[in-house]
Design a protein around this nucleic acid. Structure first.
Lengths: 337, 337
DNA sequence: CGGGTTTCTGTAAACGTTTACTGGATGAGG
DNA sequence: CCTCATCCAGTAAACGTTTACAGAAACCCG
């Protein structure tokens, strides 16, 4: 665990200058003899270049960041699964930031860009505040935001159409003859919470159904919160015949509660989730869910970032991923294998 | 996106030397006046220290690594969930390496330690080869290995008792009156595959049951492979009344196949998984599973690493996490809420 | 007010690379 | 054989910090 060899060590052993060592190691033209001596000295010493020194000089860290609220959430996991291999293939390491639903933490990550320990960042912010926008504008490294940002924000952006996603789900439930369609949301002051709430409120009238606020219940984006919210909703509105849940975790909670209450899914109550995570096919009955294209969003974000890294002066780009309804047993009662 | 301010910029603006700037920023004693001027200059300029320069000088990167085969696997996810907050609380960033079941990749990660971009590493190796051992010995930064390593290996080590875990599960199934207990394993040339295979083979005789190789089937540690393996096993041994699966994903595959074959779980076939991941409570029926303490292992590994970082000369330590059987509906038919 | 402490600040070196510049050696062409 | 171009290799500076050292300033006390 002693100090490792540096190019100076190599230079001494090979009897050349450190410049020659550097040149050989970087594949610049050198006399065959010098090259041979340097290479074998390097091999014998087990030389590995020091990344801090390299970064300091080259002004690149060969690291990229991904920041999200909570690694436990399968949505982010789906993104990471796409992002990691792309980063790796492009020669970048992945630095992970889980901000734990803490806004100050998010800002810290953005400020951290100034330390230049990463060459770029993909972030999925919970909210986009004025402070976020300031940091985006001042950032000294490229940023890709997953989630909507105001027009003109100087970052690449990947978004989905929540409105359409909710419309797909509600339309599906309606087409199945359901008329009392409950909605279980997460906190409405988050980006997805707000979008999904608004979308639900406008999807019903579009189908000729009244918007009934007592069919809406809010918890958090987790299974147990979802279960509690559904329990409240069921008590208040015992005649509901369908539930749209703002994510799959909430939908799992719904399944738990409905099962315990003796309601059959989907015969008595049809249940649909959102995000179409891996959990959807593990649940029983398998969960109908609106895919918000998490994997695609991850991939698109990584591609945008990598592209910008070798073309810094491009105009910011917006990629929109289309939601897609994945129908499974929890609404139709037929198993899709 | 232009070049950021450095301590030199600050020094000029504040009319002091760079040494004073550095001292103020590091909280070393300074005259109140100098301090005020430096701080306000730093604030006005939006100064953020350059991490490469800092690392180069201080020989620490403030980054720690976690390397595993596949981020998609919920076992590793459970570990990350524990590791990340501990690292963060100790002031370290997390660099993630998913080696994609590629051994050369694992070795690369170990070699990367020489670049000193991380101050330490937690690794969950697939196999521990001679080359691994060489790298461990030569490593210039502390390593914690999750999974067994030979006695005397100079790394901290967190392990579980697979033998006992399998014994718990088999014992449970036996106590429920099951006598034809199949075993669905992953590749036996991996660390967990080998351990679990050996453990199964010795658990049965200990209970007075014969070890019947035709009750064993091998696939991979994934759901679809598991399903295929179970299908083969069922065809060959239609009278089996219990299945032990070497991880939860395989067990999920087993549930799929059994359901499709019209076998009731647990009445006809009791199913137990291993690892007790989140999936176990999402599955239906909820999965009895042997917890190998993934979360604890993650936590223990992080603690060992952090401890070693401020006490480098300590003898290598081994922490063993006890497996624990978590009984759920897939073996007893009673739901645990 | 002088000597000795104490406290603060500046100069300069160092961390391990990369790279512009310069000079020496070699080879080609006249 | 001289000139000039070409090719390599070495010297030194630079990247942005931290820190040992030395000097300056301030203070205390007799």
């Amino acid at each position: 665990m002693s100090d490792g060899p540096t190019i100076t060590t190599i230079a001494q052993r090979a009897g050349v200058s450190i410049a020659s060592v550097s040149r050989v190691l970087n594949g610049l033209p050198t006399k065959a003899d010098t090259e041979r001596r340097v290479m074998s000295a390097a091999r014998e010493l087990g030389y590995v270049p020091n990344s801090a020194a390299r970064s300091l000089k080259s002004r690149r860290s060969n690291q990229l960041g991904f920041a999200m609220a909570d690694i436990g959430n399968p949505v982010y996991l789906a993104m990471i699964r796409e992002i990691q291999p792309l980063f790796k293939a492009a020669g970048y390491r992945l630095v992970l930031h889980s901000t734990n639903v803490d806004e100050a933490d998010e800002i810290d990550v953005l400020r951290g860009l100034g330390e230049r320990y990463i060459d770029g960042l993909i972030m999925v912010p919970l909210r986009v505040t004025a402070e976020h926008l300031n940091m985006f504008a001042a950032a000294r490294a490229p940023i890709v935001i997953i989630g909507s940002v105001p027009e003109g924000t100087p970052v690449d952006n990947v978004r989905t159409d929540s409105r359409k996603g909710v419309r797909l789900a509600v339309g599906h439930l309606h087409a199945l003859g359901r008329r009392r369609i409950g909605f279980v949301n997460g906190p409405v002051d988050t980006v997805p919470g707000a979008a999904r709430s608004a979308a639900y409120a406008e999807a019903l009238p579009a189908l000729g159904l009244p918007y009934d606020p007592s069919l809406v219940e809010v918890g958090d984006f987790y299974r147990t919160d979802g279960a509690r919210a559904v329990a409240r909703l069921l008590e208040r509105e015992p005649d509901l015949d369908a539930l749209l849940c703002a994510n799959d975790l909430i939908a799992l909670g719904a399944l738990d509660v409905l099962r315990r209450a003796g309601r059959r899914v989907p015969q008595d109550v049809a249940v649909a989730g959102m995000d179409d995570t891996d959990l959807a096919t593990i649940a029983w009955p398998a969960l109908t869910s609106v895919s918000m294209g998490s994997a695609e969003r991850g991939r698109a974000a990584a591609e945008l970032l990598l592209d910008r890294l070798d073309n810094g002066r491009r105009a910011p780009r917006v990629v929109t991923v289309e939601p897609r309804l994945v129908v499974r047993a929890s609404t139709t009662g037929e198993e899709t294998p």
